[in-house]
Structures are given as structure tokens and as C-alpha cells.
Amino acid sequence: MNYPTLALLTIFILSVFVGFEVISKVSSMLHTPLMSGANAIHGIIVIGAMTVLATSHGILQLTIGFIAVVFATINVVGGFVVTDRMLEMFKGRQPAKQAADSGAQR
């Protein structure tokens, strides 16, 4: 689908506000996992890489597109797995966790 530039700009501006709003109450304990999780999300560039690889012609373009897909996939997969590993350590102690959290938000 082809969107007018203004529509894309509108989406961009609204997303800025959502991005600020959605993490405004994070405790410092979660800064590292949050950064890592956000890092995985920008791996969405993988769909962009797939799109440009699909329309590539010639060995040079195909090579660049291929590298982009590999890079983006590493970003996605590595990002989500390492975030999950961090968060795994917090599991199974909900009550204590909440106490620590409310302490952090004072």
C-alpha cells in the first residue's frame, strides 16, 4: 500500500508520544532488560531487509540484501533471547519483587 507522506508523518509523531508514555514509570531495576527488549524490537528492520532483498537484482544488490537480512535476524533473535535470559532470573518471587519495585519507585 502507498501512504501519503503526511499520513506517515502523523503515525511517526503519534508513535513518539506512545514511546515516551509507555515506559515513563519504569524502575531502575528494569533499565537493563528494558533497553535490551527495545533493542530486540528495532530488529523489525528484518522485514525491511526481506522486502529490499526480494526486489534486488545482480550479485552486488543480492549480497547487500543478504547481509542486511543476516544482521537484522541476529538483532531480533539475539535481542529477545538475551532479554528473556535476564528476566528469567526474576521469576518465581512475585511478592518480594513487588516490594522491591515499590521501593524503587519512591
Binding site: 506517515l8 515516551f20 509507555v22 515506559i23 515513563s24 528495532h42 523489525i44 528492520i45
Partner: peptide, 28 residues
């Protein structure tokens, strides 16, 4: 950068996801 390539490719999802990370990352 991801959001910018979303503009290039006319891809709304790239814009939304990239911008979310750009904004929240700046705040973080």
C-alpha cells in the same frame, strides 16, 4: 534509523516500531 527506512519503504510497521524504540530509548 529503522523508522527512517520505514518512510523509505512506505512501511507503517517499521515506522511505528522504530519510533517507539527511538522515543523510549531517548527517555531511558
Amino acid at each position: 534509523a529503522v523508522a527512517a527506512s520505514g518512510f523509505v519503504l512506505n512501511n507503517v510497521l517499521l515506522i511505528v516500531a522504530g519510533t517507539l524504540v527511538g522515543a523510549s530509548g531517548t527517555l531511558l
